Simulated assay, not measured.
Amino acid sequence: MGVRTWIDSWPVYRQLKGTDPLGRGAAAKSARSARLTPRTASADRVVKSVCPYCAVGCGQNVYVEGGRVTQIEGDPDSPVSRGRLCPKGSASLQLTTGDAREHYVLHRRPYGTEWQRLDLDRAMDMIADRVIEARRAGWQWEVDRARTRRTLGFASLGGATLDNEENYLIKKLFTALGAIQIENQARI
């Protein structure tokens, strides 16, 4: 590499002599960074979503390639976040593809001291059985001779990341099951 070639490749020289005097574009690029392509360039489609971490509801663009999530970024069209994400939202790709993601449920039996792994289907069956039993054991047809048709055997406490549609469905489900203690953490 000659001296002239070396000087021409020097970012400060390119910044002063080129069309990028503030050093925000071409002057700041190295040859290697000029060859790089964005992680989102190979995506088949972009799916609009909402960040799952808090009640703010920042918009996200989820980039999907071959049926697999490859990148998650802030949605510039979102009136809430205008394309910005906090550190938690920026790391939400790990929810779908991270090595630490669990694909099973940990369960500790009553009075047990050890956790055991259960597959999701088994865990869902256990939850359904317990809801049915709690409903059966705590069902009240009437209270003080007033018809109630309810149960105090279980309750629902929703999280702050649930959107309106999810809250609506949860309210409908628990009301149909006879529960009257239905609340959302976002209002507490």
Rank of each mutant, 00 (worst) to 15 (best):
K17W: 08
W10Q: 11
V12T: 13
A55S: 14
Y63Q: 00
V80A: 03
V131N: 06
N184H: 14
S30G: 10
Y63N: 00
Q71N: 12
T40L: 00
Y168M: 10
G25R: 07
R145N: 15
T97R: 11
G178S: 11
T151G: 08
T96F: 14
R32F: 04
R24A: 03
A55Q: 06
S81V: 04
R145P: 03
I72R: 02
T70Y: 00
Y13T: 15
R145V: 06
G18Q: 02
E183Q: 11
T5S: 15
R82S: 12
K48L: 07
E142Q: 15
A176P: 00
P76R: 05
D144L: 13
L22G: 06
V50C: 00
A28G: 11
P11C: 05
E166C: 08
P110G: 11
V69K: 01
K172A: 04
S33I: 09
R187H: 06
R84L: 13
A41M: 11
G158W: 00
K172W: 01
V105M: 08
L162C: 11
R187F: 12
T161M: 11
S78W: 01
V131E: 07
D8S: 11
E65A: 11
A41K: 08
V12Q: 13
A186V: 14
T19S: 13
W10Y: 11
R24V: 06
A31E: 13
A137I: 10
R147S: 13
P38G: 14
S49T: 01
R4V: 14
G83K: 08
W141G: 14
E165I: 09
